[in-house]
Computed example of a mutant assay.
Amino acid sequence: MNLKTYLIPFLLTFSILFCTSEVSFSQNQFKVLVFSKTKGFRHQSIPDGVVALKKLAKDNVFQIYTTEDEAHITDKNLAGYDVIILMSTTGTIFNEEQKKSIEKFVQSGKGIVGIHSATDTEYEWPWFTKLIGAQFLNHPHQQTLKLNVINRNHPATYHLPEKWIWSDEIYAFKNFNPEVNVLITADEKTYEAKDGMGDFHPLAWTHEYDGGRVFYTALGHTDWAFQDDNFMKHILGGIWWAAKGYPVD
Rank of each mutant, 00 (worst) to 15 (best):
T90Q: 02
T121R: 13
W127A: 12
L86W: 09
M87D: 03
Q142C: 14
A186H: 07
G111F: 01
H141K: 11
F136W: 10
I184H: 02
A118E: 00
G133W: 11
L131M: 11
W125N: 07
F62R: 05
N148I: 07
T66E: 14
G196S: 02
I150V: 14
D187K: 15
D82C: 07
A172Q: 15
N151W: 02
L183Y: 01
E70S: 11
I85C: 01
T67A: 03
N95P: 12
Q63P: 11
L78D: 13
G109Y: 08
E192Y: 09
F105H: 00
T190L: 12
F136C: 01
N148K: 09
I112T: 02
L86I: 02
D195I: 14
E162T: 11
P178E: 09
A193R: 10
E103R: 12
F136L: 12
M87C: 15
D69T: 06
A186D: 06
M87R: 06
I64E: 12
S108A: 07
T89C: 06
K104V: 01
D195S: 04
Y81N: 00
F136A: 12
G80D: 08
S117Q: 14
A193N: 12
H141Y: 04
H116N: 08
K99R: 09
G198P: 03
K110E: 05
K99Y: 08
W125L: 14
N181P: 02
D187Y: 08
T66F: 09
D82P: 01
F176D: 01
N148V: 10
I150D: 00
E192A: 14
K99F: 15
H159D: 04
E192C: 13
D187H: 05
G198W: 05
H154L: 06
T67C: 03
L78T: 11
A156N: 03
G111E: 01
I115F: 12
L160W: 08
W127R: 03
E97T: 10
H116T: 06
L183I: 02
D82N: 09
T157N: 11
N138G: 09
Q135Y: 15
F105D: 00
K174W: 15
S108G: 10
D187E: 04
G109C: 15
I112R: 14
K76E: 15
E70H: 15
K194T: 09
F105Q: 00
V61T: 15
L78K: 13
R152V: 05
H154T: 05
I112D: 00
V113M: 05
G198D: 05
G109N: 14
V182P: 01
Y65N: 05
N177G: 03
E188D: 04
K130S: 07
T185I: 04
V83P: 02
T185Y: 10
W127Q: 04
K76V: 08
A186K: 12
A71V: 05
K76L: 14
D75P: 14
L147R: 03
K146S: 06
G198C: 01
K110M: 11
Q107P: 04
K76Q: 10
Y81S: 00
I165P: 12
E97N: 07
T144M: 03
G133D: 02
F136G: 08
I93K: 11
W125A: 08
K76G: 08
I102Y: 14
Y171Q: 00
E103V: 10
I84D: 00
Y123E: 06
I150R: 01
T129E: 14
N177A: 11
M197E: 00
